Simulated scan of single mutants.
Amino acid sequence: MVVTNIVGLIDNTYLKPYGTTEDIERLVEDTARYGAYSITINPVFVRYARDYMSRRGYKLRISVVIDFPFGALTTDARVELIRRYSGLVDEYDVVVPMGLVKSGLWRDVEDDIKTVVEEAHRLGKVVKVIVEDAYTTREEKLELYRIVMQSGADFIKTSTGFEEREYAERLGNRVGAQVENVRLMAELSRRYNPRIGIKVAGGIRTYQQVLELLNASERRPDPTEFRVGTSHMLDIIRTMPKS
């Protein structure tokens, strides 16, 4: 697959806990300048970003992360956050309830994700479910991917980018977006939900990485099917071939 410009697939991201309003302004300006699909930010800056874009005349999409990066809130709290920001955002990136996943409480995991997805859709929003690949075994991935795909989520997303490397390595995993996990998502989606989009995130800094992950996803280079979450959009642009 040859893609000359993948910027329109990017959710331009700033999620560092020490970020400032100036960082959000730069994120918005870069997104508007280069034509990324959206910005992805923490809830604390949603109102500021929306007001700033209004002053600048920008009509950009905003995605807000929910229960990020741990996936440690109750279902009720997650749903409440989705409702609270529904008038300001277009999309949600929601972390799976990781403690329930690691406890093998699959019925509870399924109920939580289904409830969260249904609430987001009731409000007319796109919802991406972050499965945090670095924290799960292959057996856990098989069950978790199935649950996410059958929940009706718009996207399954690889990672937060905030994984604990030491724990991941104990499981034999690497942090960030990995081609083998995206291939598994594509394989299982053929059985459970061929329409689900795939979002790759975590450690993506080059154009070549994007192409490899896109090819593994078996999706078209269309933002309704494939997204790239990255805080390194400018690095990706610098590594793109010159037309």
Rank of each mutant, 00 (worst) to 15 (best):
T40Y: 02
G229V: 00
V175L: 08
M185C: 01
E187V: 05
R55A: 11
R190H: 11
R170D: 11
N12L: 09
P69F: 02
D30L: 06
N215C: 07
G87H: 13
I82A: 03
T75S: 07
R83W: 10
Y207V: 07
V200W: 06
T230D: 06
I156M: 11
V129M: 04
A134C: 14
R56F: 02
V131I: 15
R78T: 12
P69N: 04
V175G: 07
D222V: 05
P43V: 05
D11F: 05
G87V: 04
P241E: 10
S63H: 06
D76N: 11
E132I: 03
K59F: 08
V3L: 15
Y192W: 12
V228E: 00
L105T: 07
M233T: 08
L27R: 01
D30I: 03
K16M: 11
R195L: 09
Y85C: 02
F68Y: 15
E143V: 15
A77K: 10
V2D: 13
D30M: 03
R220L: 14
E218P: 02
L60A: 03
K16T: 12
R138I: 14
E91W: 01
V109K: 06
R26M: 08
N215S: 12
I113W: 00
S151I: 02
N42Y: 09
G229Q: 00
T160L: 07
T21Y: 13
D112G: 04
D108P: 03
H121R: 15
T4H: 12
V129C: 01
I113S: 01
E110M: 08
R146G: 01
T206V: 09
L144K: 06
T74D: 08
D108H: 13
T21H: 14
D67V: 03
N173R: 12
Y37V: 02
L144R: 05
R122E: 14
L15Y: 08
K102C: 08
D222S: 09
M53V: 05
N181G: 10
N12Y: 06
N193F: 00
L142D: 13
G172F: 10
K157E: 02
L144H: 06
M185P: 01
G19P: 06
V95A: 04
A201V: 07
V179M: 06
Y34L: 05
V182Q: 04
T75E: 08
G229I: 02
R191S: 13
I147T: 05
V79R: 03
I62F: 06
T20H: 10
K242C: 09
D133R: 07
E140F: 06
R50I: 04
A72W: 09
V109F: 09
I196W: 01
H121D: 09
F45E: 11
G8Y: 05
I39L: 04
S151F: 01
L27F: 06
E22D: 15
T137F: 09
I66V: 15
M98T: 11
K102R: 15
G152E: 07
Y18K: 14
P97C: 11
V228Q: 03
V89L: 00
Y167P: 04
Y58G: 01
H121N: 11
N215M: 13
A36V: 00
R83H: 13
L211M: 15
K16E: 14
M98H: 09
I39P: 00
V65F: 03
L211P: 04
T31G: 05
V79A: 03
E164S: 10
T20F: 10
D67L: 04
G87T: 10
